[in-house]
């Protein structure tokens, strides 16, 4: 099933406004085997000069899940989630963000293309992360739709 570029580009999300708790970041640190205590111990974070637990480098991706139905756009494009693979992920960082801060996300699909005679399709999503008016970070994700996967 070919994804139409215009359908992909028409996907839009409302801004996400989210605040991440210390406990959430502690859980993330535990679940990812983090060993640097500034990511799970508030006293260590403060001793390192930070106002609170830092949002780790890859956790910015998780901020995008802070919405009721993060996979709904796939249904709108007729993509089965089981066909999906994460292909690439990039971040640019302008400043750090911390537990307790309000972060606003603006995301959009910016490109969609196919390879191998349509066996693989690629969705490119860009996200900007703001604290107030300040651009804190930017992300670019490439999701791969594997059309050759047989689903049962």
């Amino acid at each position: 099933m070919a994804i139409l570029l215009e359908d992909a580009l028409a996907i839009s999300w409302p801004d996400i406004i989210t605040t991440i708790s210390r406990d959430r970041l502690k859980l993330f640190a535990t679940s990812t085997g983090a060993t640097n205590s500034i990511y799970f111990d508030i006293d260590e974070a403060r001793a390192a000069g930070y106002p609170d637990l830092p949002i780790p480098l890859s956790f910015f991706f998780s901020l995008g899940f802070e919405q009721p139905e993060p996979f709904k756009y796939l249904t709108n494009l007729d993509i089965d989630i089981r066909q999906l693979l994460h292909g690439e992920q990039s971040f640019q960082y302008h400043s750090m963000a911390f537990a307790g801060e309000s972060i606003t996300l603006r995301a959009a699909i910016v490109d969609c293309y196919s390879r191998k005679n349509g066996e693989l399709e690629f969705l490119v999503k860009e996200t900007e992360y703001f604290r107030g008016d300040e651009l804190v970070a930017e992300a670019r994700s490439v999701e791969v739709v594997q059309n050759m996967v047989t689903l049962q």
Partner: peptide
């Protein structure tokens, strides 16, 4: 999850 491994990469860097 791919992002689990990316979190490990983040730890490599921030350690």
């Amino acid at each position: 999850h791919g992002m689990l491994s990316m979190a490990y990469v983040a730890s490599l860097l921030t350690n």
